[in-house]
Design a binder for these strands. Sequence first.
DNA 1: TAAAAATACTCCATAGGTATTTTAT
DNA 2: ATAAAATACCTATGGAGTATTTTTA
Lengths: 294, 294
Amino acid sequence: MNIKDLKYLVALAEHKHFGKAAEKCFVSQPALSMQIQKLEELLGIKLIERSNKSVLITESGLNIVKRAQDILNQVEAVHELARSAKDPYAGELKIGIFPTLAPYLLPLIIPALVKKFSKLSFYLLEEKTAVLIDQLKLGKIHAAFLALPLAEKQLTTTHLFDEEFLLAVPKTHELAKAKIIMQKDLENKKLLLLEEGHCMREQALSFCQQLQATETQDFRATSLETLRHMVAAGVGMTLMPKFACHSAKNLAYIPFQSPKPLRSICLAWRNTSAKQALLNEVSQEIISTVKTNA
Amino acid sequence: MNIKDLKYLVALAEHKHFGKAAEKCFVSQPALSMQIQKLEELLGIKLIERSNKSVLITESGLNIVKRAQDILNQVEAVHELARSAKDPYAGELKIGIFPTLAPYLLPLIIPALVKKFSKLSFYLLEEKTAVLIDQLKLGKIHAAFLALPLAEKQLTTTHLFDEEFLLAVPKTHELAKAKIIMQKDLENKKLLLLEEGHCMREQALSFCQQLQATETQDFRATSLETLRHMVAAGVGMTLMPKFACHSAKNLAYIPFQSPKPLRSICLAWRNTSAKQALLNEVSQEIISTVKTNA
DNA sequence: TAAAAATACTCCATAGGTATTTTAT
DNA sequence: ATAAAATACCTATGGAGTATTTTTA
């Protein structure tokens, strides 16, 4: 068996089309077709159900594709190891981050990271948590900022910081002049929240439950900025993570009484990552940068 | 990079001797020597510290050896997966079946199938015909029980059996004591039928046309059991497939004069299915089970 | 000087390309 | 009729063999 064959198989599983897969692998369609056939012959099983209109992966094929992906990640890790053996601070670092954190955290830390790890090329992927976890497992990114707790056993995490949530209200609101929000202030009140799929939505919902507050039923925002504008327009109030609390006309941010609601942010990477050592250093740098700037 | 190269590297790390390692890999010493050099060149780092008396693995070499071992294990796992997938009588078989057949046919055949194909895990999906065909094409199920005729060219079918329709009437009905239903008996009569989307509805409608019978306009049942209860309650009469004709209080089932109305049931799978052979055997088993039990 | 790795060279298996055919919708 | 996969055939890369040389404890 050959690593290339596995690449071909994985590409085929991804594109479900011999021509497209071949193109992605920079070989001709017959070349890929032949190698897949050889692989099937070698393994003695059908991996693919072919017709001219559809390419389906068989059940056993799917299992093998998963393994193959893993193997390709490991092979990539070998290259990574070699690169970082040449210079641990050189190469690429692809980091995922979710949308309710990205625009507020990145401006804080990226300058410091770029300065400290000047030979490293940073690539950023902004996606919702579920996508990030998939991409991590698939080896498409090296690490991701995620909110704890995390149930993934194959991921290593370092805790970076806890971010407090403040209550965002219109300046005209009765709570706008409060120094602190008490438990009872929000009882039976309605909050504007984000749409499904944002991890922050879940965190906010669980905090709502504690406070016996509820969600406004007829509206869900697609981003924190939308949410901020809704609040500024006087439509309602919401929870806002501290880094996102830039002062704005018509807006007041008020801290909660302890226990304050917060989200716990970590950096996560595959247990098997070749960049373990580097990622630990990156984590340390983030921690200290956030500490001095927050 | 090549899996063989990794084997060579791991063997060398184990034996710390090019000649011995080469022997273990069933190649000549120069062959192994060359490939290790090529690997070092590819990765751009020294993996081995050579002298004629000692072979030492460098620090980065050691890390890579560990990875390589892991990769070789994974590759072995792929072979293992393939080996266990080879037994066509093991694994999963996902079969779709439509709701007017499922509860009557399955109790007949599933015990026999489970006994005959004991290493196979059967999964059943009960959905209307249109859904089943979609799921088949998408590769979500391996096969489906469907009523003939079938317009799908990409599906292979084996005819399993023909199932006769009987007339179900309340015992108080004028036809309840008839031995046989003649063509003219139903002329201009009204029948209770199933709701849209059931293939049996279409079959019944087409038979109604032949007999110049019509459908009761103000009611459509959602299942055969509802239909049976409606008839038992004296609301009207309907067609009932033979397997569903369990005797019930207040109900009589009467056969039709030839040509009897019937539905033709087949097992269908993708022309490209990897389980062709198995499915043919399953079909045979179903045919003989139905024959002996019907 | 002796054991072991590296080099030189030759061969051939096979991956991969282009052109074409087959297949299924 | 058409899109897509399979086949045929050719080329060339590179893996592996044997014979030999170089290296260094």
